[in-house]
Design a protein around this nucleic acid. Sequence first.
DNA 1: TGTACATCAGTGAACGCGCGTTCACTGATGTAC
DNA 2: TGTACATCAGTGAACGCGCGTTCACTGATGTAC
Lengths: 198, 198
Amino acid sequence: MSVIMRVSKEKLAENRAALIDAASRLFREKGIDGVGVAEIARAAGLTHGALYAHFPSKDALVAAALEAGFGRSVAFMRRTVADRDPSFAGYVDFLLSSKMRDAVGNGCPMTASCSEVGRQGEEVSARFTEGLEGMAAAVEEAIGEGASTDERRKLGLATIAAYVGAIAIARGVETADPNLSEEVIEATRHLLKRVGSN
Amino acid sequence: MSVIMRVSKEKLAENRAALIDAASRLFREKGIDGVGVAEIARAAGLTHGALYAHFPSKDALVAAALEAGFGRSVAFMRRTVADRDPSFAGYVDFLLSSKMRDAVGNGCPMTASCSEVGRQGEEVSARFTEGLEGMAAAVEEAIGEGASTDERRKLGLATIAAYVGAIAIARGVETADPNLSEEVIEATRHLLKRVGSN
DNA sequence: TGTACATCAGTGAACGCGCGTTCACTGATGTAC
DNA sequence: TGTACATCAGTGAACGCGCGTTCACTGATGTAC
């Protein structure tokens, strides 16, 4: 077979991006412990050996995938909410929806991996922390000026927490009880709107 | 070596309980995909082969472990809150605390596995659903009679969602930012108390 | 601009290991007489 | 109550497979002259 070695700088960057994209998607779909490096490399059109030319370990790839996933996710959220209803209620509607629950592979890394990151390395925890701050900051900015800085910060963080729990639970119960899945999302959206309007 | 076969009915029940206990603890500590059946059997003082005399598959063991974990977890919550402050605020204080975050191995199965159950089988989803209903019911009962049945149900579910998200996130960011970990719990506790007192 | 050559991204075989599951076998327990 | 024997929980070797990681090798790219 004709094997192509030593690739152009352009192709190198492309391959790296493909690895991160594939990892990001597969980790969200199957869990961090649920995908192997070989499957990720294959999905990126490479062999597993090549992965180690880009990342020193699977943990480093997890961190890179998390960072990329959050970057895309936060940007998409800001853009969508800005176009639709750039208020706190707009964020609540965006975050607490069945569309959000169904977006697993290209959804938010936080809802997909929340109960797994606590068991990963330091680098992963650091990227997860940045992701949380990024999401909370976006929500905070949309909270009315009536609230104090402290109140806004608290509401921003608590909104993300409620969102993550609701979507993760909604995914967990969906197979057994689709109605309950909707109910959890609706109940959490209701609670947040009640608080948002003081 | 002197190998003991065919065990008494008493020992049989003991072994089954030991398997479920070990599985329940290890799944919470290391994740469902993070522990193998051999490790669980070893922790229960058995070999992996014996596990299949009790459960047809790992998935069935996961379901049994989830059921047992929720049973114990809900009972402990009810007892503790009843002794301390049997109000909605009492539940919020119990659920949103750093003690809850630190109780991983013997804590709540929901916070430990929320982002993993969506990828398991039907039986697991069913047990997870029952666990959610059990926790929400306990919280609902403590909500003041001023609220309508619908409002109480909604607040019960949303409280569990917020709790699960906050504790899972608090665990995820703890390594990288312990202060933020506390902040998320505190912010969520604050939000829920604000809503609870209307 | 043309030539010689060092670099290094990617390949694919191999490392030791653990995974979930199966199964022939064992022998104390529990039962039938 | 005593004896004969069927049951079946538990053992441990084995199944095929995938895991994360390493490494000798390849050869087009990019660079130095």
